[in-house]
Design a protein around this nucleic acid. Structure first.
Lengths: 250, 250
DNA sequence: GTCTATATTCAGATAGAC
DNA sequence: GTCTATCTGAATATAGAC
């Protein structure tokens, strides 16, 4: 039985290609023929190895999230042990959570920017099976970090922290996922996302340096004022102040 | 010729239903049969009125974005005129931009939360025709607000402002779009998104009150420090500090 | 494990009667 | 403007030879 070295990793080749195609075109718009064609394997191979297309997507995420979830817990454990009972600083919690994620972007073996973009885009996908999958994959880690954040900000109400965790996830996912779209929307001035020359700072590093201060600033922002009076300092939607507007009949 | 009142607004009914379905299932996963079935109109009606499915999606957005874009410019114009040459405060710019958007969520005639969610989700859609459409629809408004932000923060480099505008768009879109998904991910503690009882604060208002301080905090956060030395204060991805890691072969 | 061939279903779109 | 009927293509998935 001689070497069929190339044949044996059909499974991995499919996963690599699927990851790229799902990122580029979205889950629905990526057909199994596109995947198997680009991977140079037979159409039936996907069903043989994964059963169905949905399972393939789940497996694409599983192999990356396994590392990410483990790493996030390891880093948080290490920080908490180091702090010996004291609450962590908010910046430490954010670094552990977002830094670990962005690290994936620097390492092709962990999925690189391709996977990060896929992750950011897929998180907003409305498909039921996808959101159910993410909910179960993320539950434990999010809960741990939520608790760490709550301890790190004793003066901020729990509910407010959860909102802000939500906002931070959004800012990050979008920043990563939106490469093409928001690039165009926000103009061409941004330093290039792509083209990570070895030697220079990686794409993920540049993103991290800008994102972290933003997130920290948002997380520690003054609390909203809920006191009775309505139009107190202008946190209302601007349009809400005008009245008697007519809605043109299109 | 007696009243065929109900027949004449087939076009609008299709748009209303399509908006809801695209939001709930995504563009690709929504078939024209689903839309026409739920709208109670004939399958051929979509092609008759809009030509093709892609055109239908564009029209769903056009009728809402027309109001939004106009309103955003009106509000910004009014603020700038009122300031008579002086730069606006960052909070004013944010209110004008995000408040106008969130106002849609309070008014069913403007699309309500259904449209806001659809918008948030669709912005990350990778389809080429969708991103091209948004780029052209948004170009003018984004440019105006970008300039207003740059004037309002004279000490912050232009590039940094563009990054942060990007992050803000992400935080907001995600917060809106992620109702189902991130609800689950971040736990059940958040005050309910849905169920806007008239009399109480609307969903959009509650979101606005939390989002605005967060965005403002992020926008005005201290700048990242780019000075030479690498590991200065820990803004690196946490995982990047460890070395010699092995990547298990799956 | 890999391939061909095919079953089955469903998509978007249109022709043409009314 | 609306409907029925249908064209055409492409999707996922599987049976069965090798």
């Amino acid at each position: 039985m001689p070497d069929n070295k190339l044949n044996s990793d059909t499974r991995e080749r499919i996963l690599d290609v699927a990851e790229r195609q799902f990122m580029a075109h979205g889950y629905d718009a990526t057909s199994m023929r596109m995947i198997t064609g680009a991977a140079g394997v037979n159409l039936a191979a996907v069903n043989y190895h994964f059963g169905a297309k949905e399972e393939l997507l789940r497996e694409v995420f599983r192999r990356r999230l396994a590392w990410l979830n483990k790493e996030r817990l390891i880093v948080l454990d290490a920080l908490e042990q180091q702090a010996s009972g004291e609450p962590l600083k908010p910046s430490q919690v954010l670094e552990a959570f977002f830094g670990t994620l962005l690290h994936i972007g620097e390492d092709e073996a962990l999925g690189g920017m391709t996977f990060l973009r896929l992750l950011g885009r897929t998180l907003t996908d409305p498909s039921a099976f996808i959101s159910a999958f993410f909910a179960s994959e993320y539950a434990e880690v999010i809960e741990r970090y939520k608790q760490a954040l709550i301890r790190s900000l004793p003066d901020v109400p729990r509910a407010e922290i959860v909102w802000r965790l939500h906002f931070m996830l959004g800012a990050m996912s979008y920043a990563i996922a939106g490469t093409d779209i928001l690039h165009v929307i926000t103009g061409v001035e941004m330093s290039d996302y792509a083209g990570q020359e070895p030697g220079g700072k990686s794409e993920a590093m540049k993103l991290s340096q800008r994102l972290m201060p933003f997130l920290l600033g948002g997380l520690r922002a003054p609390l909203p004022n809920f006191s009775a009076s309505s139009a107190q300092n202008g946190l209302l939607p601007a349009g809400a102040k005008r009245e008697g507007e007519e809605v043109k009949k299109q």
